[in-house]
Structures are given as structure tokens and as C-alpha cells.
Design a protein around this nucleic acid. Structure first.
Lengths: 135, 135
DNA sequence: TTAAGTGTATTAAGTGATATAATACACTTA
DNA sequence: TAAGTGTATTATATCACTTAATACACTTAA
């Protein structure tokens, strides 16, 4: 397990998933949750690669997907910046959340679990953890 | 997209995921939902491979995992059978469901979504579909 | 103008997961 | 004995992922 702070971003990298996917997910999360502010400069491709001790091409791949998500903008010769548009972040969140939720509901359906079953499990878990998630 | 009925089992195979994983998931689902009965004989490795037009080794891999799940028992020289123990199926369901749910909640948390947000989305979706899932 | 720092593109190579193919063995049943 | 089981092995092929080494175009600041 690898823990790394790069600017205002925090990464924990392991070998359970493709590297570019972990960078992507964790950068998405940081932007979606406002851990890095709108308009802020992201670490450069080379810098992040050096800090995480991985290849620049791998960082590039994650950064290209971030831009496709509408979460970042790239300025040739300057660097990569978090979008300044709150709407872009918001629409990304709802779209990705919808994808996650739909896929999750399919999994539950494949196990023959109803929505009520799921609610019961979550409630039990939240009680046990004394409100771990509910904002 | 490939649709195949093999005995009481139904498979739809594509190239979105590893073949062995699709077989595994769909067999798990069929057993968990009782679409194939406890104690029933599964298709033989060779038969399923032939029907799905894939390699027997690939079916083997899925079948081995099914046994590790406690969902099937293999009898050398006879075949592969669905477990006769309802408890095994039940414990598998709750265990896998817990894994799915936990991973899902992590995804939601990474997007900064609260449990209430999720509930709202689901309710809206269920209303729109006039009760698509609720048992 | 120059140097350093950006994103980007290309080519080559290596590794591991996935899948196929061919074959053989041990076991059970009819 | 023959046919049908699960199982194991070896070889091969493909693809995703990752690294490596370079090179190019652009921007900014010295």
C-alpha cells in the first residue's frame, strides 16, 4: 500500500487495480468532494508520475479521461486545471452516481435481494457504526 | 450478444467481461434465486463448453469458483451438483451481498453522496418504472 | 532569445490475465 | 468394457497494462 500527498491531492496506490484507474478514481473523488478547489492547478503529468513513482504515460491516461469527464481543462504549455464550472462537476457527479447505482441494483437483483432487504442491511450497519455515512 | 439455454440454466455471454466471470455470475444468480433447484445436476464441463462454444478449461475455472463459494459439490466421475444445503446458499447470498453493498457505499462516499441522496434517486427511479424492483 | 516546464505522440518492450487447443489420467456408472 | 464424469498439464495466442526512451509544440519567465 502506497500513500502519497501531492499538492492538495492524496493518493493511495496498490496493485488491486490498474494504476491509471486508481489515479482517475481518486482524482475524480477529490474534485467531486471539493478537496481540490475549482480552477486549481493539478500536479503536472511529470510531477505526479515522479511522486507516485510510475510512468508519465500512465498518468497521462488518467488525465485524458479526467478531461473527457469534463472535470479538468488542459492548457498547452501551462498545465492541467480543475474546471471552473460547478455545473460540470455537478453533472458529472449525478451521471456517475446513476451509473453506479444502476449497476449496483442489477447486482442485488441477481442475488434476488429486494430494495427493502438492502435498506435493512444499511440501517443495521449504520446503527452499528453510529452514523458512519449519513453526512 | 449470445443467448443460450442449457438445461434449466440461461446464459447470455458477451465480450464485456472475462467469460469465466460471466458464467460464474450467472450460475451464482441462478442458484441464489432458485432458478435451478437444490441438489440438481449442473451441466457437465464439456457439455456447457460445447453449448457456449468456449473452451472446457474456461468452464472449469468458473465451476471451481462455484465450489469454493459452497454453491456446488463435485463428484468425481458423476458430475457437478447444486448444493443440497439451503444454509450454504443463504450464507453465500448474505456474504456476497455484504461485499457488494460495502463496495457500493464506498463508491457513493467517494462522490460525496449521502445515503439520503441515494434513497431519493432510487425512489424517483422506482416511481418512474412503477415498482421495477420491490420484490 | 533562451531555458525550463507544460501537454502530447510515437515506438518498443515486458508482464500477466484470459482463452484456446490438444492430450492424458482417475474415477463412476451402465 | 465403454462412455461420461472432473482434473491436470503443456503449449500457444491475444490483449490490457505498464514501463522506457525520445521527440515535438507550446507557454512562461529569466
Amino acid at each position: 500500500m502506497e500513500e502519497q500527498q501531492v499538492g492538495s491531492l492524496h493518493f493511495h496506490i496498490d496493485f488491486s487495480q490498474p494504476l491509471y484507474e486508481q489515479i482517475l478514481d481518486q482524482a475524480r473523488s477529490a474534485i467531486a468532494k471539493g478537496e481540490i478547489a475549482l480552477g486549481d492547478k493539478m500536479p503536472s503529468v511529470r510531477e505526479l508520475a515522479q511522486e507516485l513513482r510510475i510512468n508519465p504515460n500512465t498518468v497521462m491516461r488518467a488525465y485524458q479521461e479526467l478531461e473527457r469527464d469534463g472535470l479538468t481543462e488542459k492548457r498547452r504549455g501551462q498545465g492541467t486545471y480543475v474546471t471552473s464550472s460547478p455545473e460540470h462537476v455537478a453533472s458529472f457527479r449525478t451521471e456517475l452516481a446513476a451509473r453506479y447505482i444502476d449497476s449496483f441494483m442489477e447486482q442485488m437483483e441477481s442475488l434476488g435481494l429486494s430494495w427493502e432487504d438492502i435498506e435493512k442491511y444499511i440501517r443495521r450497519k449504520q446503527d452499528a457504526a453510529q452514523g458512519g455515512l449519513g453526512s
